[in-house]
């Protein structure tokens, strides 16, 4: 049995592998290839070597500015989203009345599309800023904090659900034993709960990190980069490069490859860091 399984597994894997090939590997390979070419449509391209990569950084400041803005945004939103999500999860595992209602309500923003959320928050933020006679396009800082608020509103509920699952997995015996031994709540939190939810933290930081870094539709709908391109994040900058100029498709593609490499590196480092903190029960 074992043996036949081993023998035939490629055959059974084939449909999935084919789908993976068509929907992922081929486009990915083509994407990398196109980043070394000058092209208008994906089927006719001319090899230009590393020229696109050089132009991504030297043609103008946009890519570097967007990179810096994205990094700042990612740090702030990863910290805030996870903090709020964890606190909410703690609160909603205490047996508060109407817990299920709260969980549903907090989760709901995650079900709304990014573009819709972007416009909704633009209306709300502009409504508030109106008292000072300005709107969100007035300063990149408004755009930045607008995005942070939006990201928190959207992601916190989702992360909260994951943290709740993690918290519920902690054996009751452990916390009870600690309490009997005279540990205070904060000691239990610090030495039992936190280490035990580390697997949830790994997945949550990974999700918030990659989602913040890749943010596009919320950025487009909320500020579209205004003022100037000061609040444009990497994904939006790549999009604008690709479509804004004739002959810059390859440069946009090169930026996308760089974007992928940075994201892969960060995610890899983060995963190995948080993984190492995980404990087994």
């Amino acid at each position: 049995m074992e043996k036949t399984l081993k023998k035939y597994f490629p055959l059974f894997l084939l449909p999935t592998l084919l789908a993976f090939l068509i929907a992922f590997l081929i486009p990915f390979g083509m994407g990398i290839y196109l980043s070394f070419t000058q092209f208008t449509t994906v089927t006719d391209a001319q090899w230009v070597g590393l020229d696109n990569y050089r132009r991504a950084f030297t043609a103008n400041q946009d890519f570097r500015n967007a990179l810096w803005f994205t990094v700042k945004f990612t740090i702030v939103s990863v910290v805030t989203v996870n903090l709020f999500a964890f606190l909410l999860a703690l609160f909603l595992t205490q047996g508060v009345r109407a817990t299920n209602l709260f969980r549903t309500v907090f989760f709901m923003p995650n079900l709304i599309g990014g573009i819709v959320l972007g416009y909704l928050w633009q209306l709300i933020i502009n409504g508030v800023l109106r008292y000072w006679g300005v709107d969100i396009t007035f300063s990149a800082n408004y755009g930045f904090w607008g995005l942070v608020v939006l990201m928190n509103w959207q992601m916190t509920g989702y992360m909260m659900i994951i943290y709740i699952a993690g918290l519920q997995n902690i054996p009751h015996a452990l916390t009870e034993a600690a309490a009997i031994d005279g540990a205070s709540y904060f000691q239990i939190l610090r030495h039992i709960i936190l280490p035990m939810v580390m697997p949830a933290t790994t997945i949550c930081t990974f999700l918030t990190l990659t989602n913040s870094f890749k943010l596009f539709d919320q950025n487009l709908a909320l500020t579209a980069g205004a003022p100037g391109k000061e609040s444009a994040m990497l994904a939006l900058d790549i999009y604008n490069t690709f479509y804004g100029r004739i002959g810059y498709e390859g440069v946009g593609q090169a930026k996308a490859v760089i974007f992928f490499l940075i994201l892969a590196l960060i995610a890899f480092v983060q995963l190995s860091l948080t993984r190492s903190k995980e404990v087994s029960q």
């Binding site: 300005v134 396009t137 007035f138 980069g225 205004a226 003022p227 100037g228 391109k229 604008n240 479509y243 804004g244 100029r245 004739i246 810059y248």
Partner: peptide, 20 residues
């Protein structure tokens, strides 16, 4: 020239309107 030029032109007009 292209859309990139127009976008930047539009963005600076907005900054002019905002007084910055």
């Amino acid at each position: 020239p292209n859309q990139a030029f127009k976008d930047d032109f539009g963005a600076t007009l907005l900054q002019y309107a905002q007084g910055s």
